[in-house]
Design a protein around this nucleic acid. Structure first.
Lengths: 212, 212
DNA sequence: ACTTGTGAACGATTTCACAGCG
DNA sequence: CGCTGTGAAATCGTTCACAAGT
């Protein structure tokens, strides 16, 4: 029962709901109400209800929501229950190393299957069981794999060139850790992750008292 | 000429504007129009104009915006022209290590001055010139320093306890890399950075054709 | 009795269209 | 003439309040 136009903000909240449902499950809760959520994240009960209503009648009136059922539902919506998402990291620097060691990716069925770098001293080595290939092999390895998106961690200056090369592959998504703000094409979804930019917004608010 | 109620979305865009202005400067452009921006980020010219108008008359009618002047203006708004922002990292694991080596922080005058960890084998060592102290010393070191916010990279399970301790310090911001979604108090601004959650939203869109 | 699901009211943000100014 | 700055309109998202269901 997938609907037509789900608000972007609703989609952004789904992963948070999933995480909280996992916590609830760990705590042994089988059922919860939209009010219970308010204490776990600063969300109004009506927001949760409306968000979930986009995907069908997921709750039971008078009772609340079933933790396990809702978790499965959201995991399905995000596509992490039925498949393993394979990806490659382009640029095997500090960020790449941290991501390759990041335990939380297992939780969402995300598996890094390859890394690429232009530094000869890194090529042929392995980081956490992940082989590092030369940049020249990128297209070949992508074609050989089933990956649908890549994680970009090269220096900013190299970003545009790599993106141009990626456009000619069947990649459909880029998680961009580069400081460059990227927009590629309708066919390729870009997720610009810019920690520096996010911290700057915090500076803005810190500079002016604590007012939200 | 700081205004009363600037939309949250406007604030989120300021760091991106800043970055693009830096790029324009590198390219030697002295002036640009709001239309020029459209090709660099997917933003309508009117959005840029309205955003900037919250902060005064920053452009010149008929001409456009001056790159250097606007860059200085935004840097000032975000508080990175006049001061160095010192911070400490709590939890000296993989993410912390990557952040300590992250070159982009210099750009925004962000300086990591200390790290804290509970692992005795890390305490007393240095990572990139940054001393690692024991967790027990956290409050003492914070009090001794001038830091106004911290970066939290401890395992999820440890997050709540540390936050409770931070509440009793004069810290006013937390950049939270923990998988836990945190909400602390009106006095402390929390920036929840959850890469896994962001990637999940990408999964959602990848699962359904390329439609944005 | 209790909590969901939802139209309607409200609020915020984006887009439009043009007046204002260099 | 060109491009900014800005009210007004349109759109989008949130909150409210209650009907509906168990």
């Amino acid at each position: 029962m997938i609907s037509f136009e789900v608000p972007k903000n609703t989609i952004k909240r789904l992963p948070i709901y999933l995480r909280i449902l996992e916590n609830l499950e760990e705590e042994g809760k089988a059922v919860f109400s939209s009010q219970d959520f308010e204490s776990r994240m600063d969300i109004k009960p009506a927001v949760l209800r409306k968000d979930l209503a986009y995907f069908g009648n997921l709750g039971v009136r008078g009772q609340g929501y079933n933790v396990e059922k809702l978790k499965a539902e959201i995991a399905g919506l995000l596509g992490i229950s039925s498949q393993v998402w394979e990806t490659a990291i382009i640029g095997a620097g500090n960020i790449a190393r941290a991501l390759m060691r990041y335990g939380d990716f297992k939780r969402i069925n995300l598996k890094i299957v390859a890394a690429f770098d232009s530094n000869p001293s890194k090529i042929g080595k392995k980081i956490r069981d992940i082989s590092v290939y030369g940049m020249a092999d990128m297209e070949k390895q992508i074609a050989r794999s089933s990956i649908k998106f890549v994680i970009l961690t090269v220096p900013g200056k190299a970003a545009e060139e790599i993106v141009a090369r990626l456009k000619r592959t069947r990649i459909r998504g880029i998680v961009n850790f580069t400081p460059r703000y990227l927009q590629v094409s309708k066919k390729i979804k870009v997720l610009n992750i810019n920690i520096t930019a996010e911290i700057l917004t915090m500076f803005y608010y810190l500079k002016r008292g604590g007012k939200k």
